[in-house]
Amino acid sequence: MREVFFYLFAFLSVAFALVSVTHRNVIKGGLSLLASFIALGAVYFTAGAEFIGIVQVIVYGGAIVVLYLFALMTMDLKSFGKELLRTVSLAAGGAISLFLLFSVLYAGYRFYGGSIPAAVSGAKELALPLFYRFLLPFEVVSVLLLVATVGAVAVGRREE
């Protein structure tokens, strides 16, 4: 059962990733990137790493894609269509992609057949140090964020 979902979500993730780089409309591309990230999060779930899966959905799906979309909306999207693909950038991007593809294939070949450990990154293993052993620095980080937020608002606001 696990394998079925693993391959299903893996396929979805790759398919949406393909859509996101090939679609002519950038906003739709961004949305399919979001779908790809969520599918990737589901892949982590099927592999037994719930915590990384949740973080993947929250951080990438929630924060980073939204940031991308905001950035895209501030740009002039019309002018993008006219730009022709230049050979140099195409070659560079292709070389990097090929390198990544080979490293993924090699890694898959090396580790093929290995079993999945029971708790790869459970939330409990992370929570215990974070909320007990490192309690003090963890709480002081929240003070740090508070100071930084107050400071950013006070310094960034326009003078009356």
Binding site: P137, V140, V143, L144, V147, A148, V150, G151, V155
Partner: peptide, 19 residues
């Protein structure tokens, strides 16, 4: 008495002074 505590408190102090 620990590196993370030292660093975080150092930053609380420094960022307050920048502000």
């Amino acid at each position: 008495n620990e590196l993370a505590t030292l660093f975080v408190s150092l930053e609380v102090m420094s960022i307050s002074v920048y502000v």
